[in-house]
């Protein structure tokens, strides 16, 4: 009887201990760890962010998202986060911040240095997490919400949002170029040239321009000089700058996409970007037939713009694929 008593008791106690150990193993201890609460406001869509999503500081998980709500007054999304202070250690490997006050002071310093939070992708599932990191862009100013005891951190635009905005600026600059004018000018120049060549009174001129008419490349080179030296110089420069910008943006976007581990699903965008780059190269190498070229540039840019808009509105479509058909590759 005593033996049975002992073993029954042993069974109950050991299982209780196991239960408690498992509870703590699964993170019960974290509930009692010192915490601070942060809030941030996002003007953009937080599609893919859920309660419980990770909050990372330079990639190190330091907390989680507690609550997501919409501030009705200006439609900004309020994201409340909790951050475990134990994750920040000093040189002696002991917790750096004893309380919320110290952390708050540190946070203000870091915000001044450029610490922002932004949305980032976690893997291929379209789920997002909050990344705390230093970004060179000013970000959105910390919206004044005089809730006491809550620390505010400004949000930075997510990588896609960021790129989409820069892209838009470039596109607008390109849009200011009057391609039709260039094209018309070109056509007129060519027509003038033809007329010049066709004029029987100018046989001498024909003779002198014989080499040029024999080689279209050469003639177009001359034409480029003519055009460059003409009032189109400024426009051409603008075009080149913009195209260079697009190239660098494309490169950045590609890097960003690779960094975000989004391998598949962006073929359409890459195709479009490739087309822009090719076109840009083509423009530089072959200035002849400029009207056709410019038309292609226009189409390529249109594709990029449409892609950018799609991502801006619905970032996870990069993974899912666009809903309304494929991008039109120029």
């Amino acid at each position: 009887m005593n033996k049975k008593l002992f073993w029954s008791g042993f069974f109950i106690l050991s299982m209780l201990v196991l239960f408690v150990v498992m509870l703590f193993g699964f993170g019960l201890a974290a509930r009692f760890a010192p915490k601070v609460y942060l809030e941030s406001y996002f003007p953009e869509s937080v599609q893919g962010l859920a309660e419980g999503a990770a909050v990372k500081y330079k990639g190190v998980p330091v907390g989680k998202v507690d609550d997501i709500a919409i501030r009705g007054t200006d439609q900004q999304i309020r994201v409340s986060m909790s951050v475990d202070l134990d994750n920040f250690q000093g040189m002696d490997r002991r917790p750096l911040f004893a309380d919320e006050k110290k952390f708050g002071a540190w946070l203000q310093e870091e915000i001044a240095k450029g610490l922002r939070c932004r949305l980032d992708y976690a893997g291929i599932t379209g789920m997002r997490y909050i990344e705390l990191d230093y970004f060179d862009q000013p970000g959105l100013p910390p919206e004044a919400d005089p809730t006491k005891g809550v620390l505010l951190i400004p949000s930075a635009a997510s990588p896609f949002k960021d790129i989409a905005r820069s892209l838009n600026t470039s596109l607008e600059r390109i849009a200011r170029i009057r391609f039709e004018e260039i094209s018309d000018n070109l056509v007129h120049s060519l027509a003038d040239l033809n007329r010049l060549l066709a004029n029987p009174d100018l046989r001498a001129a024909i003779e002198s321009l014989h080499g040029m008419s024999a080689n279209l490349e050469a003639s177009s080179l001359v034409m480029k000089n003519v055009l460059t030296e003409s009032r189109l110089t400024k426009i051409a420069e603008d075009t080149e700058t913009s195209l260079a910008q697009i190239r660098s943006l494309t490169q950045r976007l590609n890097d960003e996409l690779q960094r975000s581990n989004i391998g598949a699903g962006i073929a359409a965008f890459q195709q479009a970007a490739e087309a822009v780059r090719n076109t840009a190269l083509f423009v530089e190498s072959r200035q002849s037939g400029l009207d056709v070229l410019l038309e292609r540039v226009d189409r390529a840019l249109e594709a990029v713009r449409s892609a950018a808009e799609t991502w801006e509105n619905d970032p996870s479509s990069v993974v899912r694929g666009r809903r309304d058909g494929e991008f039109v590759a120029p």
Binding site: F19, M22, L23, F24, G25, F26, G27, L28, R31
Partner: peptide
Amino acid sequence: TLQVLSPQVLTLGV
């Protein structure tokens, strides 16, 4: 395992 499981999951099952 420890990362994805929470005390809540264990408790609700139990």
